[in-house]
Every structure is written in C-alpha cells, then in structure tokens.
Design a protein around this nucleic acid. Sequence first.
DNA 1: ACTCGATATTGACGGCTGTCAATATCGATA
DNA 2: TATCGATATTGACAGCCGTCAATATCGAGT
Lengths: 135, 135
Amino acid sequence: MKLLEILECSPPLTREPLDAEQAAGVARAFKALGDPVRLRILSVVASRAGGEVCVCDITDAFELSQPTISHHLKVLKEVGLLTSERRASWVHYRLVPGTLGELSALLALPASGPASGPAGGSAPSLPAAAAAVPR
Amino acid sequence: MKLLEILECSPPLTREPLDAEQAAGVARAFKALGDPVRLRILSVVASRAGGEVCVCDITDAFELSQPTISHHLKVLKEVGLLTSERRASWVHYRLVPGTLGELSALLALPASGPASGPAGGSAPSLPAAAAAVPR
DNA sequence: ACTCGATATTGACGGCTGTCAATATCGATA
DNA sequence: TATCGATATTGACAGCCGTCAATATCGAGT
C-alpha cells in the first residue's frame, strides 16, 4: 500500500491509537528516517531551492561510497518519500509532495487554536479522567 | 545529548540541510518510531486522556510477551520520548512534553500562512533557482 | 561499435534489533 | 520476613541493516 494513502487515513498520534496496519505502514516511513545519512539526504533534497537534487551532488557531499548513497536513495524512494527522474546522464531526486507534511501532521500536537485545525472539536483533554486503579 | 536540545536547534528539513550531529540525534528518535509496536505504544500514550498509561494496560493490549513490551518502553524512554513514574506497584508512562511537537515541526512544510507559525519568516521558496548543469 | 562518466545492483561481512523464556527486582500486603 | 503481583533485566537466537568492493547498466559522445 502506498505511503500517502496510509498517512491520509492515520489519525494524529494524540487523537487515537493507531491500529496495527496503520502502524506498520507509518513505521516503514519512520524507519527510513531513522538513519542519519538518509535524514541528511532528505534534508538536502527538501531544502533545495528547485526541489531537485542530482545524485552526484549528494554523492560528494558525504564521505561514503557511491553504492552506499545509491542504496539510501533507493530506500527513501521505495518507502515513498522520494521520486527520481533520469535526465541525460544524471538522475534527479525530489520529494514526493505531501508525505513530509502528512508525517508532520501525524506527530503534531492537538491544535491549540481550533481556528483552522483539521481536528473535529472532540476531547478537550479532560484532565486525568481515569485516575482509578489501572485494572 | 538530550533529544529536546537537539530538536530545538535543528531547523526544519525544508529550511536547510541537517549537519551530521543534528542528523545523528534526530535519527535516534525516528529510529525509535520506526517500529510498529513502539509506534502503537506511543499512540496509546499520546492519545490517552490523562496523558498517562500504566504498563499493564499496554501489556495486554498487545499480543507480545511482557519483556518485549518492557523493552520497547525502555527504548522509547531512553530516546527521550517517554518518561516513567512508579506509583505503588504500577509504573506509569507519559509523553515527554515538547518532543512530539518538535519532531512534527522538523518535518513540517514551510508555513503557508505565516500567521502563528513558530518559524521566522524567511525563504519564500524561490521556485527553481539552480537549473544549471549539476556539476 | 567503442569508450566514458553516472548511477544501480550484487555479494559479502559485521553489527544491530525484535522477540522470547527464564530470572531478578521492587512494593504492597499478610 | 515471606509471599505475591507488577515490571525490569539477562541471555540467546534469528533476521535485518549499513557499508564497501566489484561489477553491471545506461546515456552520451566519439
């Protein structure tokens, strides 16, 4: 299943627990972000003005072998965070639009100002409702 | 170094590339989120009304051995996402305030409406500036 | 067709990780 | 202090993961 579809039907963590299927899908994305090199690669792509990075730019921004960089790019691509396009000899990577934003929304706190928040106005966070004996 | 400190001095991915140290710190957090079980545990804690969950509640919400759950809780705690407090026989876990929000901000897209965004209003995302030959 | 530079794939290796059974620890209660 | 329930720790094992050297593929130019 595609990452974006999973993200779009996964509520924010602060809203309700994820079911097993959602968790499995989302975890794949976070696992991909769980490597320092991939995180840096992603930040290079995400912060690039044109939104596009040539592999060669990445390869010599890191002190890692070219196959290793290629491997990380593949991981980021397979999980649905990046896309690639070949132009002439060079391959360019860019963000898959939406995924970063959806991941961000998943972790976001419940909007303090309920002005434009996506949340239905439920659960005003009743302070300590279940203070009884746990079981 | 503590997770929150790292997060507080790490710019959003869309702003500028992470340096190696920031990436290493942040990646630890995402790595912890990169397991389906931990993600579900975290969502259970995050969505809990009182903000607190007893271990026993988690242990029998999953079909995993008690040591396994304990292990995952330890990982989430060591990485700085959860805290625990012992009360009587039971141990209660809660979110470390701020971390989820900071992680969310790290992944967030550049705020379209700069109304209440935490970002200083820089970088109007110049569209495609570097279109020249990659190298 | 041949060569060359850019990128991907393969195969191998050491280290990390998720899981469990067994055991230990820690509080409460008798 | 003896016991019991709740949680943590230990040790072991299979499987995954990051890295590299070697090699393959793919376009472009000659």
